[in-house]
Structure formats: C-alpha cells, structure tokens
Design a protein around this nucleic acid. Structure first.
Length: 614
DNA sequence: TTAGGGTTAG
C-alpha cells in the first residue's frame, strides 16, 4: 500500500476509535482527547471549547500586540496609510519623525516596499529629517526589492546626517544579502562587524546567519553555529532554535527537530506558538496525525494557543488528504471564534477544492475573498489558475491572468509556469512558447522549474531539436541543472528512439556531479526495453539496487512488459514472481499483456495466482 | 519605533 493509502487507513481506524472515546480534561480545563483521537475530532473539540467561553482570549491578545502606537490606528491597507500620511503632512506644527516611521513600518509590513520608498521621498520634500530608524526601514525595503546597491548607499545617508549605523543596520543588510543568496557579501559584513569592534554581532545577527544556512539547506552548518553560540557570550535564543527546528521539519527530519525541541526546553527556553506550528507542520507532512494531536494537546496544556497560521497548517493538511469538508468546517469554526482566516487560509481551502475537482466551490471561496477587499493576492490567483489548468479550463485560466493587472497584481514566474505547463499538457506547444516569451517580455524571468516544464512539453510533443536548443540555453545561463532536467531529457531522447544519446547522457551524469534517482533508472530502463535491449535493462535493475536505489512497482512493470513485448516469456514470468515476492503487483497494462499471453500461448495456469490486479 | 523564526501555488 502506498504511503497515502496507509495514512488514510490509520485515519479511518482512528476515526472509529475516536467515536467511542470520551474526552478528558487537561490542565486549565482545556479539552484534551485521548491519544488515539483524530486531528479533526481534536480541532472540533478545541474550537467548541472556545465557543463555550464568554471571553475571546485570542482576539483580545492579538489586538493588543498589533496596535503599533497609542495614537495611530492600525493600518490594514495602503489607502489608509496614504490618507494618514497626508493628514500628518498637513498638521502644523509638523509631527516628529517617529509617527512617520510608524506609518513606514506598517506599510513595509504590508509588503508595499516601493510605497515606503515613495513615502520616504515625500518626507524629504516636506522637510522631515529621517532618523536612524527611518534609514533602517529604508534599507530593509531596498533589500526586499532586491536593490542591494541602494541599500548600501543608504549607509552614506547615515554619515551625511551625523548618525551612526547600529547593529540592527548591519543585521538588516546581512539579511538582505542572504535573502538574495549573496552569501559572500553577507559574510563580508559579518566579518567586518567582528573586526571593527564597535558594532559586535548580537543574537539577531547570529539568528540571521542561522536562517541563512537553513535557507541553503545546510542544517548541519546551522546547528554548528548554534553550538558556537553556546560557547560564546551570545547564547542561542528561542528564535535561533525555532529556525532550525522549522528547517529540520521542512526536511522531514522530525525526530531531530523534536530532539532539539527537548534540548531547548531543558535549557529553560520556553517554546511559543511558532515553534509548535513548525513541529505540527512537520508531523502533518509525514501523516503522523497522532503526533499532531499530541503536540496540540501539549501546547494547549502550556497555555500556548494555536493561531491562524497553526490552523492554516492543519486545514491545509486536511485539504491535501482530500478532507476538504472538514477543512471547510474548521474555517467556519475559526470565524465563529474570531480567529479570522487570512489570505493563506482561504487560498489553502481553495486549493483543497481544486484538488478534489470541485472548481465551482473553489470559485466561491475566491469570490468570498474578493468580496472581503484586499484579500486576494498573486498567490491566490495562481492557485485558482492552477485549478483551472489542471481541469483543462484554459480559457478561464487565461481570463484570470488578464484580470490580475486590473487589480494591481503582477503575474509572476509561477503564474506563467502554471500556464505554460497546461499548454504543454494540452499539446498546445506553440501557445506555451508564446507564454514563455511573454513572461520574459513582462520582466518575469523563467527559473529552472519553468525551463523544466517547457523542456518536458517539447520532449513529449516530439520537438527534440527545440528541446535541445532550450537545454543549451539553460547551460548558457549557468542554471544549477538538477537531475529532474536530465530525467526529462533522457526520457525525451528515448521517446525519440535516440537510445544511444540517452545512454550517453545517463552515463555522463556522475561527471556532472549528479546521481541518478529511481526515476532516472526507470526512464532509462523503459527506453532500453522499448529499444529491445532487455538484458541491459535487467543489468540496470541490478545496478540501481546496488547503488541503494530501490526498484518500485513501476520498475518491475516496465521490464516485465519489455520481456513480453520481446517474446521473452520465461524471463517475464521469473520477474513477475520476484515482483510479487517483493510486494508489488502488475498494473493494468501489464495484466492485459499477461492475460493475452495466457490466452494465446496456453502458459501454465499455475502462474495465474502470481498476477494480482491492483 | 528599526534587524533574525511558523501557513498557500508551478
């Protein structure tokens, strides 16, 4: 049984167990279910518990935290920010720089970085002199806009104004460089901080570097840095630990994450909702529902309450498991309890409906988001566009693309990649190429994944020479070409009957620093079988096992089909036996071939039990 | 008042 199937079995069995279990009461009266209860039951009980309470603890807590200053209302959209800014400019005497900084902070939090720069320029024209905070905010915005040159030039403004950059200034710059994968420059600033003596790195500096390592996928280096912090004066804090815990969870190393979590608590560092959300996400991705329930119980017992992001993680997991009805219920209960679902929550739900092919319901969620004002972003558009594409509703998808600019949203690399993929899969390779050109004309650069999509489309649509041209273009752009790209190309060469070239590319992988994965072997084995080279295919089957790449049901099926199609019946039967012994079974195509064979050649019926329909 | 950690799409 595949992992999803196994997980669904567990969910079904735990649902039955939960129905007969009664809830107990944990610390501070929060509902706590027995460990064999399902996540859904837990969620329902958790939310029902809050529903029964007269107070609304989560809302009141978050409102206090969000209030930026006593005198300024919370800004939730760009229009409000501009209005308030204009009103302040008309006041006489002019307010100090501090409330202007507050507006800039709020606008930056809304991710309207260009707007912050525009407001900053207006401040200058109105004679409001920036202070160190203003300049730090400005640097941060330039960093997010990938304008590191401007970020660095702001340093000059500090000196012009007689201000001294602080550790936070350098931390912002380090973060900016790391966000753009410019590790050398980030390291350069860090080294200068150490050498300079005046502005020593602090816990945020180290936390930023820890995140940098995690972003590069180097958890070991992140942990090493954590250990270094322990030796020095700057001890690791909750953020440093949580960053690594999250990274380990994302890499499905949940046991390591839980060990670090225990270590952190042993040192007296208390976890918060962010730490728990990362862990819950990690176990959910592995389908460990009981563990998710345990963690939810654990956090609640510590008086740490799941927030909108925690619920979104759970809701998204339910959606990905096809339990979109339960996900919808969770949304409704969140609303009842004033845990307001945000853009990501609704986008996840929309994706859940798309995954189930319930496009009309996905559209309803999207319309609800539209009715709520500034809730729809490029990400949510991409999700619905993807939903339309996956269900061959290309006209509707293109209409959404057209709608985006009218809403001030910029279609990004993912938007175009999704559409290119859909065109390819529908055989409209010309349209795909046009979109590929259009995205570049609009300033959206295709990434490796976009290239992979088009490369695959060209190969599958038997345009090998154009595919090879695209591949050379990728090489010219010095992309970090991964095994996925080579798998596509080897598959394309095999499909075009160029087995020699495919074999050359396959054999040359190690010289390019790449290891074939199970998919690479399957592609090559299939190509060899179609080319009648079954003995070589069997050799590859052995090789993949020797190299620690376990063959799967697909591997066996393609070789067995190869044997049958090459009239090597005895070898086919031998491999069928091996396949069954390893717990795999014949798929529909293989079964059909075997049945035909049995009918035609009167093969020993004793072999029939070996053929197990899926 | 400014800097580092958690959620969605190809």
């Amino acid at each position: 049984m595949n992992p999803v199937g196994a997980m669904l079995k567990i969910i079904r069995s735990t649902t039955a167990a939960a129905a007969s279990s009664s809830s107990c009461w944990s610390w501070r009266g929060m509902p706590c279910l027995h460990s064999n209860s399902t996540l859904v039951v837990f969620l329902n009980n958790y939310l029902a518990f809050f529903h029964s309470q007269p107070s609304k603890p989560i809302k009141s807590r978050s409102t206090q935290l969000k209030q930026p200053v006593r005198d300024l209302p919370n800004i939730t959209n760009l229009g409000d920010a501009f209005n308030m800014f204009d009103r302040m400019l008309q006041m006489r005497p002019l307010p100090s720089v501090a409330p202007f900084n507050q507006i800039l902070i709020q606008v930056a939090k809304l991710k309207h970085y260009s707007a912050v720069i525009s407001l900053y320029n207006q401040m200058g024209m109105s004679g409001i002199e920036p202070d160190g905070y203003t300049l730090n905010i400005l640097i941060n915005c330039y960093c997010h806009l990938n304008q590191m040159g401007f970020s660095l030039s702001v340093l000059g403004n500090f000196f012009k104004l007689g201000l001294k950059p602080k550790v936070s200034t350098f931390n912002t710059l380090i973060n900016g460089f790391l966000l753009k994968n410019r590790v050398a420059e980030a390291a350069g600033i860090f080294n200068k901080m150490i050498a300079g003596g005046n502005c020593q790195p602090n816990v945020v500096t180290y936390g930023t570097l820890v995140k940098g390592f995690c972003m590069k996928g180097n958890n070991s280096a992140a942990i090493q840095l954590l250990r270094k912090m322990e030796e020095g004066a700057c001890k690791p804090d909750l953020v440093a630990y949580s960053t690594i815990i999250d990274s380990l969870c994302k890499d499905t190393l949940v046991d390591d994450a839980l060990n670090l979590f225990s270590e952190m608590m042993c040192k007296g560092i208390a976890p918060n909702v962010i730490t728990y959300t990362s862990l819950i996400h990690g176990v959910c991705k592995l389908g460990e529902w009981k563990e998710a329930t345990r963690l939810l119980n654990d956090m609640v017992s510590r008086n740490i309450f799941p927030d909108v992001r925690t619920f979104t993680v759970l809701l998204d997991t339910l959606c990905k498991e096809g339990m979109v009805g339960e996900a919808q219920t969770v949304v409704e209960m969140m609303i009842e309890r004033d845990i307001e679902p945000d853009t990501v929550t609704y986008s996840s739900l929309m994706d859940g409906y798309c995954l189930q092919g319930r496009i009309d319901e996905a559209k309803k969620v999207f319309e609800l988001m539209l009715s709520k004002g500034s809730m729809v972003d490029a990400f949510s558009y991409n999700i619905l566009i993807n939903g339309f594409c996956k269900h061959k509703m290309m006209d509707e998808a293109m209409m959404l693309l057209g709608e985006m600019s009218g809403k001030g949203l910029v279609p990004d690399t993912v938007t175009y990649s999704t559409l290119v993929d859909s065109c390819c899969k529908m055989g409209k390779i010309g349209d795909a190429q046009k979109l590929f050109s259009k995205m570049q004309a609009c300033g959206q650069l295709p990434d490796v994944q976009t290239y992979a999509i088009l490369l695959d489309g060209l190969c599958k649509n038997r345009q090998l020479s154009t595919a090879m041209q695209l591949f050379r273009e990728m090489e010219g752009k010095r992309f970090d070409l991964n095994i996925v790209i080579y798998n596509i190309l080897i598959d394309g060469l095999c499909l075009a009957g160029k087995i020699e070239s495919a074999r050359d590319l396959f054999c040359g992988l190690s010289s390019r620093g790449l290891q074939p994965n199970a998919r690479t072997y399957n592609i090559m084995i299939k190509g060899l079988c179609i080319g009648g080279l079954t003995s070589e295919a069997v050799k590859l089957l052995t090789e993949m096992e020797e190299k620690g790449c376990s063959p799967d049901g697909y591997t066996y099926n393609i070789i067995i089909r190869g044997f049958i199609n090459n009239n090597e019946t005895v070898r086919a039967m031998g491999l069928i036996q091996q396949m069954v012994e390893r717990g795999f079974s014949a798929d529909a195509s293989t079964t059909e071939l075997i049945v035909n064979l049995l009918c035609k050649d009167k093969v020993d019926p004793a072999l029939l039990p070996l053929i197990k329909r899926e």
